[in-house]
Every structure is written in C-alpha cells, then in structure tokens.
Design a binder for these strands. Structure first.
Lengths: 196, 196
DNA sequence: CACAGTTTAGACTCGGAGTCCAAACCGGTG
DNA sequence: CACCGGTTTGGACTCCGAGTCTAAACTGTG
C-alpha cells in the first residue's frame, strides 16, 4: 500500500458507502472506481487489491476512535465521568463516519482476521479503556472489576452493536439517544439503586 | 431451499468451520463439498448457492438462541434472575456451536442484510429480552428503563462481542468466565454500590 | 530537455460460482 | 418385476470479475 494523498484519501471514503451497503465481496473493483472517481488501474497502483482499500477505510475509522477515546480518557474528572465521555466520543465517531463504521462492523470477520486491524482496535479502544477501568477501581470510583480487559471488550460490544443497529438496521432512533441508554446501563446497571 | 434431512443438516454443520475460519467468500463451493461430504451438485440441488448454506447454519444457531432465551425468560424468579439465566443460556449456545456462532458474527453484514436473519434474531433475542426488561421495570426488580428495546440490543452486543472475542480472537479465557463479567456488569453496573 | 514517478486505458489470464445434463439410484405402487 | 417420481452425482460448460500487464500519456523537478 503506497502512501495516499489527503485528496485521494477523501475520495476513497466514498467507497465506504458501497462496502456498507453490499459488503466487500459484492463490491466490484469497477464500482469502487466509479464511486470514487479513481480508475481501477490507479487503485491497483496504490493498493494490492480491494481488500486493502477496505483496510484503508478501516484505518481511518480506527484512527478516529483512537483519538476520540484517548482524548476522553485523558480528560479531567473521575473514571466514571471519563468513561461516560469515552462512550459519547465513540458514538460521535459513528456519527462522523456512519458508512465506514458500518462497513467495519459488517466485515468484522475480515477485520478480525487481519492481525493489524485487531491490533489497532486493541490500541484504540480496548487497552485504554482497560486502563481506565483499572484506574477507576484503584481510586474507588468503580467497584472491583475482576476482568477489566474482558469488561472493556464487553463495553466495546455494547457500544458498537447498539450504534450499528440504530445506524443500519432500525434508523428510527437518533444516535444521540444511545448515550442515555448505554451510559446508565454500564455505570448503574439494570437493578434499582436502593440508595437512589 | 428444499427441506433438509436431519443427517444432511448435521453434515452441513461441518461447513461452519470453513465459514468461521475464512468467511463465506473465501470458501469455495468445492471446499464445502469436501468438508461436508456432500457433492457440489447435491448442494445446488438443495440450496440456491453457498449463501443459502450459510443461512441454513445461521438458522440452526438462531433456533438454538431462541430456545435458550425462551426457556430462560419463561423460568421462575425475578426478572433479574431470569435475565441472568438468559445470559448464561446464550453463552451456552456459543459453547455448543462455537464455529457456527463465529461464522454468524463474522458475516454479520450479510446476516444483517438478509431480512429473515434480522427478523429471526429479533424474535430469538431482542423481542423476548425487551419484554423481560419491561416486566422487570413493572414489578420493580429493574430500575426504570427508558428504551427497553435499545437496551436489549445493547445487551445482545455485550454478550456476543465478549463471547466471540473469547472464542475466536483471544481464546485465553474460558467462555464460562464471561458469566462473571457480563452478569454483574449489566445488573450492577460499574459504579460501587453504597448499599453493598 | 531528460528522467522519475504517477496516471490511465484497455487487453489479457485465470479461478471459481453457478448451470446444465444425462446417467445412475432409490423407494414406493400397480 | 416394470414403472415412476424424486434424489444423487460426475463432469462439462458459461460467465463474471479480480488481478496482471503493457504501453502511452502526463507531471513535476533538476
């Protein structure tokens, strides 16, 4: 994969629509060419094949997640407040890159099988959130969490699944409504608080 | 898709391994034939194509989820106890059909795009769990939940993502360890309970 | 201008999905 | 047993699209 100019990168994001609608394999190289305005031969000059085009798009999203999460984690406040901001920021990435996020989630298998995508999703979300959970436990703003890493992974699933569902399957509710669903769910749980 | 005999159905499940490892598109019809022992021509006699073979496998898993969830929801106890059993039962399906579950999650895009798969995952999990949440709110065993359906979807994501991760990506932890992660997470949340 | 890198059209190869067919097989039924 | 419908299968065939290749044009830089 040759280095991609900013302009070309932007053009390429148009392919995210195709991938989100049809998936990688139902998307012809010619379609990508048509949608992006980049001729097939040029695409092959930059990328090994359409799978690498998809990886490029995934990279853009994962970078955005990385920045969003890193910013939220590094911010002020208790671990709980920062986790709430992680959720908000992550959802904002879905709002910013709806089609690309959808493509990422929908071609999850391919993504998971690509070691560098797995590594990046680890760096972007799982590792920082795991650390945040540990912090919160240490300073008492979270209850003891026996498996912070698995918990972080579960949180990732909570956020992404809900977001993708709203985005792609039943776009009846706005994405913002999810903050009010997910944040209380993961912070307070479903049981009533006797001290509330 | 013609009706499939029990024996043939069992043979077909061998294809789940291929789908889980490589995804549908990297799996050749010939490979399916080799893995299942069913010749290509016979496969095409029963199914429109390999996509329908995948749908068949998805159907088996979704049926199992349906039965597991229905059983847990219908059981005795508070809504919280029944939800805990839903989680356990759902995880048990992952344990029973690891490869097929993986294939389902990995080819999520295809699944989500297939209207009957979306409908079945709604019937199997989302609708019954939404109802369970409503019940729990009504009888006071859950706190008020403004968006029970979105919450149910979020729960589905929590469970499946964690399970798939453990199953496919980092099989270091056993699947059972997830019960202790997910159940407290969704029932109690991450914040400490001052009344605990 | 010459040279290196980029861009592109278009022709080509090749693998695999799905089609088709005809032969065999199988389990009733008269 | 002879027949008939549905099933099973091998193998040949078509067709589409990914990826390759080439050569020409174009771009900017010394």
């Amino acid at each position: 994969m040759r280095p991609v100019s900013k302009e070309m990168g932007e053009k390429l994001m148009a392919a995210a629509d195709l991938f989100a609608e049809r998936g990688l394999d139902a998307t012809k190289t010619e379609d990508i060419a048509a949608a992006t305005g980049i001729p097939k031969a040029t695409i092959y000059y930059y990328f090994e094949g359409k799978e690498e085009v998809l990886s490029f798009i995934f990279g853009v999203v994962l970078d955005a997640v990385h920045d969003a999460v890193a910013g939220a984690v590094a911010g002020p406040g208790t671990a709980a407040q920062r986790l709430a901001r992680v959720i908000e920021a992550h959802l904002q990435v879905f709002a910013d890159y709806p089609k690309a996020s959808q493509a990422l989630h929908f071609d999850l298998g391919r993504a998971a099988r690509a070691p560098e995508v797995a590594a990046r999703s680890n760096e972007s979300f799982i590792a920082p959130v795991t650390a945040l959970l540990r912090d919160g436990v240490a300073d008492g703003s979270f209850r003891p969490i026996p498996e912070p890493r698995l918990t972080a992974i579960a949180l990732l699933g909570t956020i992404t699944t809900a977001a993708i569902h709203v985005l792609a399957i039943e776009p009846t509710d706005p994405l913002e409504s999810l903050v009010g669903v997910i944040t209380p769910l993961v912070l307070d749980g479903l049981l009533p608080r006797s001290d509330a």
